[in-house]
Design a protein around this nucleic acid. Sequence first.
DNA 1: TATCATTTGTTCGTATGTATC
DNA 2: CGATACATACGAACAAATGAT
Lengths: 259, 259
Amino acid sequence: MTEIQRPGALYQQVAAAIREAILSGEYEPGAPLPSEAQLMERYKVSRPTVRNAVSALRAEGLIDVHHGKGSFVRSDSRPVVSLPGYVGRTSGGRFVLHGVAAWEQAEEPSTYRTHTTETTAHLLELQVEEALFGCDRLLIDPTTGTRAMHRTLIPFATAEAVPDLAEAPHGEPATVYEILTKAGHKLWWSETVRASMPLPDERTALRLPDAAPVLHLSRVTCGTDDQPLILEELRVGADRAELTYRITADKQPARRARD
Amino acid sequence: MTEIQRPGALYQQVAAAIREAILSGEYEPGAPLPSEAQLMERYKVSRPTVRNAVSALRAEGLIDVHHGKGSFVRSDSRPVVSLPGYVGRTSGGRFVLHGVAAWEQAEEPSTYRTHTTETTAHLLELQVEEALFGCDRLLIDPTTGTRAMHRTLIPFATAEAVPDLAEAPHGEPATVYEILTKAGHKLWWSETVRASMPLPDERTALRLPDAAPVLHLSRVTCGTDDQPLILEELRVGADRAELTYRITADKQPARRARD
DNA sequence: TATCATTTGTTCGTATGTATC
DNA sequence: CGATACATACGAACAAATGAT
């Protein structure tokens, strides 16, 4: 019987006790936690206190809670999808979305007009509130079930400069790159990685569990004049995916063993 | 007066109403939300329901709540630190930790022995539970106040093969790379990016606000025999930092304008 | 400096709804 | 169907941080 008494709020102490039990392996991954009633008994606290503690552990991503079943220690296995970063590999505009993963489109892509935000404006070197063409896709990796949201943003200036782009506003990225290459651009790009918590609709679309952050990958593609031409964004749950940048430097490495 | 009635739980409806008001700009970034008492009045619900709704918005990172003051719309500005990714830039082992940011060590580095986890074992191509030397550092960027946790992991095999390493077990990474280079290794590496929610101690150490994920950067350095030699890890709050991989491909790009 | 009103934080109690088995 | 377990909701009280008086 671990007495609860240490620091701060009661529910924090309860949470700390359970957390410790989890991290020490007392509750093994996948194993169920005691029920709320049992935890009340165990720590001599009220139901709201127990729920507050459990809620804290959910927010930390330590446990999964299923209505009517119980709470379970989350098995923090490695992500199932390892997306290869692209920077540094030029091969003439032949890129199929973002990664080796064989994404399938879950729905028809939706196209629209929008404006730059602070983030996208910075990446594209534009002012905020400048007009953009947008195209969203929901992607699914049928092998692992991993879902991702893909977005292509094209500034008006780029669409004007490349008539073929304006006609078929948003084919797949591979097509877009091809068009840009045919328009005489020698492409290069940079990638930026961020992370944030999803909004409810993103959580739904990506089928994310509790406390799963979202990885944001932004690829800015620039042309011969070193000006940003388009922006590709990919959002994917950090619980399922990781992003790996491999080598291109002095040495071409042998293929790593356990990939 | 927006009537609350639609979907699911009451607190979800309240949360949705507030969320919509925030995203539509009705509550501007930095502006205070109505107090809990006012929200109770506004939506004719009890205090627990209001608090539940507010709690949901906190978990989404939409608002910051300050004890005794109130709730405020979080201004989702861009991260203040943009860490440059390293992959693809070999220059003979001269690397100072992770990034241009002038990190300062907040404390003395702590060294210890540990074992591979599932993640680190995979990155280092080892079995799980193999022995490692570890060295942790808490870093602070004095310019922005951004904090980061840095870790160096060295397999026993590497330490044995390179006696100089074993003697001064953990100098700064720059020193370690230098030693490896002097030992005749031609280094290359790959970097993997993940994200997760922080544990309480990480939140404290990194001074993270609510709902801020942590970006995990892992750099595996390999030697002439293409075997992984050491692993560098950097954890930094995704609210303050982003990671950018710039170009090395066919073309040496001009320095981007607005960095 | 001290006090007070306001606001959020914590904790209890209680009741009912809903998912799972 | 019933038992179990989590989800939602209300009410009430006190603690603690904040800012103004």
